[in-house]
């Protein structure tokens, strides 16, 4: 937030602008000449609900995987070991250099099939490959957030800790990470938002998440409006509260200059 203090009048203006934009979108949709069969979407609301629950569960699972992988990789990049640093760097670059859709094709249609994962996981395979793939993808971005968080701590802290006799690892664990963790929270929350959105790509491997059900609905009713407009609104219902949380945390951290959000 700039130097401007938030006043009651500002809040009214902001609410009015939001209302105007939402109103314009609703008006534009209602003016669409196509016959939109909202009833067909409403009849299938159970599918949307089921999809939303699956999307939330998959995103949460992938976030856990991503946080674990990303923390390991991020700390590896900050460690004193050249080998660990290079291994983590290679992982991050491989993942960030390819689109998630392509990673998913490779993981599901090539790797998982060649490894006969079906024999081990049965019908849970698409969901598990999806969570693993999304986690692997997210981990690379989390690693960058962790690395940036560690690097954001003043050099002097390292020097002070080392001169007190702490090792590199001890300095990281007891001095640097506790301070960096708070700064990492806003970008990590925004990473969760991006996970929810990327999970829509799992529809191509038959995972029954939100977009999968909307695509099926559109194909069954030939009504793209009644399938994809509620889809967009449902994603916003998940992502907007998370984004709000991100902003709130950023404001609280403002004095220590929160990290810029890595990716939206």
């Amino acid at each position: 937030m700039g130097p401007r203090a938030t006043t009651g009048r500002d809040a009214v203006v902001r609410a009015a602008v939001v209302a105007a934009i939402v109103g314009a979108i609703v008006l534009a949709v209602s003016l669409v000449p196509a016959e939109v069969n909202w009833a067909s979407a409403f009849e299938r609301r159970d599918l949307f609900t089921r999809g939303l629950v699956t999307t939330a569960a998959i995103s949460a699972g992938a976030l856990v995987v991503g946080l674990a992988l990303g923390t390991l990789a991020g700390l590896a990049r900050a460690s004193s070991s050249v080998a660990l640093d290079q291994a983590a760097f290679t992982y991050v670059e491989l993942v960030r250099g390819t689109p998630f859709l392509v990673q998913l094709y490779v993981l599901y249609f090539c790797v998982a099939r060649a490894a006969h994962l079906y024999d081990a996981f049965g019908d849970a395979e698409p969901v598990l490959v999806g969570i693993a793939g999304l986690g692997l993808f997210s981990g690379a971005y989390v690693a960058e957030i962790v690395r940036a968080g560690v690097e954001s701590i003043d050099r002097g802290q390292w020097e002070a800790a080392r001169s007190l006799g702490l090792s590199h690892a001890q300095t990281l664990r007891h001095v640097i990470v506790p301070q960096a963790a708070a700064r990492m929270l806003p970008p990590l929350t925004s990473e969760a938002v991006s996970l929810v959105k990327e999970s829509s790509l799992l529809s191509v491997i038959g995972v029954g998440e939100l977009t999968f059900h909307a695509k099926n609905l559109s194909a069954a009713t030939y009504d793209s409006f009644a399938a994809y407009l509620p889809l967009a609104v449902l994603y916003l219902c998940v992502t907007l509260p998370l984004s709000w949380l991100t902003r709130r945390m950023e404001r609280r951290l403002a004095p220590v200059a929160a990290l810029p959000v890595a990716r939206l």
Binding site: D123, V204, A219
Partner: peptide
């Protein structure tokens, strides 16, 4: 049964070939 739709015939048939 569970009907699982894919974007194209190759993806769908591979699903069967893989025993999924």
């Amino acid at each position: 049964a569970e009907i699982r739709p894919f974007d194209n015939q190759v993806d769908a048939s591979k699903e069967v070939a893989a025993g999924r």
